[in-house]
Design a protein around this nucleic acid. Structure first.
Lengths: 241, 241
DNA sequence: AGCCGAATTTGCGCCCGCGCAAAGACCGCA
DNA sequence: TGCGGTCTTTGCGCGGGCGCAAATTCGGCT
């Protein structure tokens, strides 16, 4: 019955945007959706494109990057499976304010603005969920704004890593690692510094046994000490001795 | 007929949050509202307070300030008459993430979270309006994040002043002035620098005839030159000669 | 009119972190 | 197994802007 483009309703399960909806409602939501593949390195949409679609990620990892007038880039946030993205501009702008770059091969579902608006009007629960999502992101960005405005680089990098661990941490032997490839440049663009400074900081931490990093990969060996740096606490006992 | 606490329905007119609602709906909205006065220097709510109310400003000017663990403050945004504030935490947090400080004597209306949620469910239009408002703020904060991450202080101050002019500019003889009292410290907290640096920059600009500033007051004499600084353009012709 | 506190200005010295540059490591691919 | 490109590391020097401190101005209040 389902056409070739109709996604499996199961993909909506666990999405915060559709939390609290009945199965019948979910089925309705999915009828308006389209699935799409985005190859690694490609973009789901580009900064400046007309914002006529809403997006949700099924699989992969997406980087939201804002580019300034003279080319400087800032990583606004990372998107993982189950998260919505590119929905804010739908209700508040005519064009997307960021690039959505696939860091791995991705699968996403999209809705037209008209369809999503209609769904929200008939199911206010979706609109309220969306408010919660956007509100949480606003708070997160405000926190980052305060960090970058008032904290030293080292603390900002610590905060960024901790945020990544919370969002995409994977327990491994000897610590926690960030479960997707991440360059020094990426971290620099998250923290408002340069890849050189990030590299220096990670090297110093590595020398202290705090982290272990290799190409596009970071593992935190002693999260509590990283927290201490992030919160500017006196260094806790070094258990590595 | 209206009780002593019931606000005049007219105050809702022009509020973006309630745009597109019928008069009857507005009347319903106002039935759940309470008016409240906030004296200059007092707070409508404090960072960390349980977020159990939504707010809209009728008159005055409010400064949203986030305070970090060790006391450093950042001005997140200013709120003018007709704007909603303190509504984000309602749907995404348990406590307010900022202080709302009255910069002048203020009048606000408030709703309980329960009332606002209920109103949104019965009038999805309100929820969609809220999404637009929060989305626009998210974009603004993202822009500031990029600025503070990649731009020099002077450009950031220029951007901040231009943003203030757009939001609360008043044409006066000889230029445009910001229509509410604003200290160097405020500007510093908007741009992630110190009041000393702001003072130095304004002094330099004043020497060039670009602005005119006095205690808690800034007037822009040559907006186009300020734009040139903000956008890092080569200095335009100096018309003051 | 005079006093007090807040806001502002300005000088001076230093240091964090950037800019530049070059070398080295690692991966994918043929 | 060799090649090329991307990512990373590290050294060196400098400069923007902060920290500290003191003087000054301004406004409000009595």
């Amino acid at each position: 019955m389902a056409g070739p483009r109709a996604p499996d309703p199961a993909v909506l399960h666990g999405m915060r945007l559709f939390a609290g909806l009945e199965a019948a409602d979910l089925a309705e939501v999915i009828r308006f959706a389209q699935t799409r593949r985005v190859a690694k390195g490609a973009t789901a949409f580009k900064q400046g494109d007309p914002a006529d679609t809403c997006h949700a990620l099924i699989d992969g990892r997406i980087k939201m990057v804002q580019t300034g007038a003279d080319g400087q880039q800032v990583v606004v946030r990372f998107i993982g499976p189950g998260e919505t993205f590119g929905t804010v501009a739908t209700f508040s702008g005519v064009s997307f304010p960021v690039d959505a770059v696939a860091m791995a091969d991705c699968v996403e579902v999209t809705w037209t603005n008209a369809a999503m608006t209609d769904l929200m009007q008939r199911h206010p629960r979706i609109a309220l969920n969306a408010l919660g999502i956007v509100g949480a992101r606003l708070q997160e960005v405000q926190n980052r704004l305060r960090e970058v405005s008032t904290e030293r680089v080292e603390r900002r990098v610590a905060h960024a890593l901790l945020r990544l661990v919370r969002q995409a941490g994977r327990r491994v032997e000897g610590g926690v690692e960030i479960s997707f490839p991440l360059t020094r440049q990426d971290v620099a663009e998250m923290t408002g510094t340069t890849l050189h400074t990030v590299s220096r900081i990670l090297s110093a931490w590595e020398a202290q046994g705090l982290v272990e990093s290799s190409r596009q990969q970071v593992m935190i060996r002693q999260p509590h000490r990283l927290v201490a740096i992030a919160e500017d606490m006196p260094a806790p006992d070094d258990e590595s001795a």
